[in-house]
Design a protein around this nucleic acid. Sequence first.
DNA 1: TATTGTTATACTCTATAACTATA
DNA 2: TATAGTTATAGAGTATAACAATA
Lengths: 159, 159
Amino acid sequence: MVKALNTPRNGATFQASEASLRRLLGYHLKRGFNVVQADLTRTLKPFDLRMLTYTALAFIVDNPGLSQSQLADAMDIERPNLVIIVDELEQRELITRERVPTDRRAYALHATIQGHALFKRAAEAVTHHEERLFSAIDPETRALMIAALERIQKHGADS
Amino acid sequence: MVKALNTPRNGATFQASEASLRRLLGYHLKRGFNVVQADLTRTLKPFDLRMLTYTALAFIVDNPGLSQSQLADAMDIERPNLVIIVDELEQRELITRERVPTDRRAYALHATIQGHALFKRAAEAVTHHEERLFSAIDPETRALMIAALERIQKHGADS
DNA sequence: TATTGTTATACTCTATAACTATA
DNA sequence: TATAGTTATAGAGTATAACAATA
């Protein structure tokens, strides 16, 4: 909907002033992420997955046996918010929750055959979603952005 | 909370596999934006502003007299979601809503003296917030990222 | 017919306090 | 005591349908 910025009532162009919005990286991060998030939601819809259920499934597939605490830390979300995500994946029989013998407080998470199969199909769709959305950004720039975003995370985690 | 990635139970390192998460720009965009959003929330708290009320106020300060439709388009949010934002700013007497004589359906939005004053103080805090959070990213990289994010928006708006 | 602003509603993501059972 | 998982709850952002007033 950026086009409205170019068609205000008075014929001029709307501004995000130099003193405020347009020069803010955070502002563009938000808007860029919103576009990505909207497209990702559409991409995952056919698989009945959301951003968080997809992310959780990906981590469980890649790290069989990890606990919910470890998964929450890896996903950078709070433990309470992970519970319903794991509930949903378990009810759909995409993952299993098994008590850890050596620590009966914890659950070991594993993807089922169906979980692996669904993830494989969804991951392909996500790959196409990324290629489609970021086709205008050359690989070097993408890598540079990923490195910068990782630094922002580490820097933000310090404070 | 990335540190947990380095301290799993089995002594190995948790993975966001090459086939799935770690190589996805969208994944890093989300995590990076979450850090920014959390810090921005803290930054705006003393001014009783949220991300969206701050953004709306910025646009109104920079574009006096614009309508709610135009503001919603500029902010890239749906009209219904803007209503409570404008309500809040008006109730706090930071902006005014005046009927447009030539189109009695629309409201012209203007920032009050208090609105300008609060925005000026908040904008300074936001500037410091950005400098603090992005100090590890050199200006050239920031500019490159902003340009790339703008392209993603335009590209996403097409599809 | 189309647009502006509005109400109602629902979904997603995020955050905190407090509880239980285990360690 | 500390940790793993849970429940309850609240806040914030996003999205759609439907309506009254006006164009």
